Amino acid sequence: MNTQEIANQLVAVCKAGNFEDALVLYAPDAVSVEAGGPPGQSREAVGLAAIKAKGEWWVANHEVHSMQVAGPWPHGDRFIVGFKIDVTMKATKHRFTMEEMALYTVEGGKIVREEFFYAMG
Rank of each mutant, 00 (worst) to 15 (best):
N2G: 10
T3R: 02
E5Y: 08
I6F: 03
I6Q: 00
I6E: 02
Q9C: 04
L10F: 11
A12M: 05
A12P: 04
C14Y: 04
K15M: 02
D21S: 12
A22G: 13
L25D: 06
P28I: 08
V31L: 10
E34I: 01
G37F: 08
P39M: 12
G40K: 04
Q41D: 10
Q41F: 11
Q41K: 14
S42G: 01
R43V: 15
R43E: 03
R43K: 14
E44L: 03
V46Q: 14
G47I: 14
L48W: 10
A50C: 04
I51R: 07
A53K: 12
K54H: 12
K54V: 05
K54E: 11
K54C: 13
G55D: 05
G55S: 05
E56T: 11
E56N: 09
V59C: 07
V59M: 12
A60C: 02
N61Q: 05
H62L: 15
H65A: 14
H65W: 05
M67R: 03
M67F: 02
Q68F: 07
V69L: 00
V69R: 00
P72Y: 03
P72D: 11
H75R: 14
G76L: 09
G76P: 06
F79G: 01
G82M: 09
G82V: 12
D86C: 09
V87E: 01
T88G: 05
M89Q: 14
M89L: 13
K90D: 00
T92W: 04
T92H: 12
K93S: 11
R95L: 02
R95T: 11
T97A: 08
M98Y: 12
T105M: 09
E107K: 13
E107T: 14
E107V: 09
G108Q: 01
G109W: 04
I111V: 13
I111T: 04
E114C: 11
Y118H: 14
M120W: 03
M120L: 15
G121K: 09
